[in-house]
Design a protein around this nucleic acid. Structure first.
Lengths: 203, 203
DNA sequence: TTTCGGTTTAACCACGTGGTTAATTTATAA
DNA sequence: TTATAAATTAACCACGTGGTTAAACCGAAA
């Protein structure tokens, strides 16, 4: 039982996650995943039967990380402004720990939009319920008139976009300086929250 | 000179654009591009020497469509609020005509971030100039305190995100109904403009 | 020590890939 | 009509791909 005693299945999944997220399904090679995991290629098929199934495992995991707990937070019994603060804060934190996941998940979903059906934990109905509830809260909070959908997309988009757009944002706006980009992201949590809450406030 | 007299090079580029944008570089097959164009595969290499060069042609074109004319608009001598209205309006219009381009460009840029260097028409300096000018305008307009970078990213992100995120947005928020999603996008132009301008306004 | 199941590997396979080539067709001009 | 170059094609090639297989390895129970 030496130190590197790590079960092989996990070893494979870790390697596959790195490769798939970096190169996407089409760009990933089973050989490279095996090399990264430090094992023989046949072992990939021993534990996961095919490239598709290995990818499936990685993608589900990534999707669950990516899929915001927005519905949990949004249905909790706290004030709307607090929900918004809470969501922005925790969602940006999550993405900061896995900055490449949004681009990965969204690309694979665009490549195969039908896949979403297998992944949705909540029905359209539960979503509908939350939306109408949110819609009520917007009104009773005395906020600006805005549909629940528009607000949700704004919140999520403002959190995610900087990460997906980094390869174009950083060179143009920050002279390709990693530090300046990181500072930018750091300040985003408070900036986005301020921006949204102010956008919702009647003048 | 019959009706379908279309020069072959253009025929190839059209087919390549469709395939590359739908499947990405790694997922695209030269044979499928040839079939789509209705020509022999060897012709692809006759006009464009390699898959890379054919892709390069498609990507440059897409990037120029995608790359917002934000710097033109932002440096024109009109009031800031008008610039914002103008940008949101025209940018969403452009993307509506090519709804798959943002996901395509951003994915390929994430796959190969170095590529951006070959594509930037403006130096970091010109961008810097525009940013400080914009920063001044924000102040003199009496708007809320916000950095030029944060504002620009918010504007662009709010325009683009619904298109990149469609495969997840439509099923969850609109019961996978094409019409409801299209209505949502249509109302976005006014909604996003209102949202941003209000977010910038002090109480 | 032997046996036996789960692990791991080297070697292999059929097939699809991007790319090439030599020949054929087509248009053009003399 | 004929000569010439450009456009187009069928056939081909080397190689990388996902996947398989049979044998070897290894720890534990008998």
């Amino acid at each position: 039982m030496s130190g590197n005693e790590k079960n092989t299945e996990k070893l494979i999944l870790d390697a596959a996650r790195n490769i798939f997220i970096e190169k996407g399904f089409d760009g990933a090679r089973m050989q490279e995943i095996a090399d990264t995991a430090g094992i023989n290629k046949a072992l990939l098929h021993y534990y996961y039967r095919s490239k598709d199934q290995l990818f499936e495992a990685v993608f589900r995991e990534s999707f669950n990380t990516f899929s915001p707990r927005i519905f949990e937070i949004m249905s909790s019994p706290i004030e709307l402004s607090q929900k918004i603060r809470l969501f922005i804060d925790s969602y940006i934190d999550i993405i900061l720990e896995n900055p490449h996941i949004p681009a990965f998940v969204l690309h694979e979903l665009n490549r195969n939009p039908g896949r979403i059906k297998d992944l949705m934990p909540f029905t359209g109905q539960t979503a509908g319920g939350l939306l109408s509830a949110l819609s009520q809260e917007i009104k009773s909070a005395g906020y600006v008139e805005i549909s629940a959908q528009q607000l949700m997309i704004n919140m999520i988009g403002l959190c995610i976009f900087p990460f997906i757009g980094r390869p174009i944002i950083q060179p143009i706006l920050f002279g390709n300086d990693d530090n300046r980009f990181d500072e930018f992201i750091q300040s985003r949590k408070t900036e986005v929250t301020k921006f949204i809450l102010n956008a919702l406030t009647k003048k």
